[in-house]
Amino acid sequence: MAGSTLEIKNLHVSIEGNEILKGVDLTIKGGEFHAIMGPNGTGKSTLASAIMGHPKFEITEGSVLLDGEDVLEMDVDERARAGLFLAMQYPSEISGVTTSDFLRSSINARREEGDEIPLMKFIKEMDEALDYLEIDKNMAQRYLNEGFSGGEKKRNEILQLMLLKPEIAILDEIDSGLDIDALKVVSKGINKLRDENFGCLIITHYQRLLNYITPDAVHVMMQGRVVKSGGPELAQRLEAEGYDWIKEELGIEDETVGQEA
């Protein structure tokens, strides 16, 4: 079997005692691109953060397995080294640490001690990726995300994705705040990684990203659950008709978490 498999089973997640996710089931295999759509406040970003191990979220029930290994038992860095990657919606700014030093540390973290990436090889790979994403080379020497525009932060997340080559990537609203040109560049970067060994979960609430990255499956989240799944045509229908028809079909009045009838 090519690539890795990420299995999310009956996942329940709370923050400060409030349950946000109420039983999410989803399986992503190498070679597959899944999109999760849904209005704001339905638990999409919580799912992404919980899988990566964000310190604020508490898993109260369910499991997350990567190739059968229990992800929830791993520390955040172990999850990354096992092959997971999360492009964050709000990446931290780290003053005094250059983007380049951070990238090199990240690459070396998944290599054995004594087998660090040679400096010239690293620079070559980084420069190629910077060019591919049409990022100014100065960014490598700027402090990580410090003073970056919204668009620069998003490109930097995709830059990391391209250099770290994870097995499974989760992209949390990578399209928000991007103009159409930036959206095209970011999509180009993601599509470059597309092969049978790479699985991707794309979280968005706009269909327009999916014009550039065609998903194999589309899932809609409401009230902390996946309420509907389908093919790419589901995204197109959502774009044309909005979410009301799903709410009607399922008898949901308010789709946000905590508003269940």
């Binding site: 990566m52 310190p55 860095d77 931290s92």
Partner: peptide
Amino acid sequence: YYLMSRGITQKEAERLVIHGFL
């Protein structure tokens, strides 16, 4: 969390933050 989500160990992440701070 951000640094560790790229595979960097907690110890190394702290080292980076402190060096960056100084």
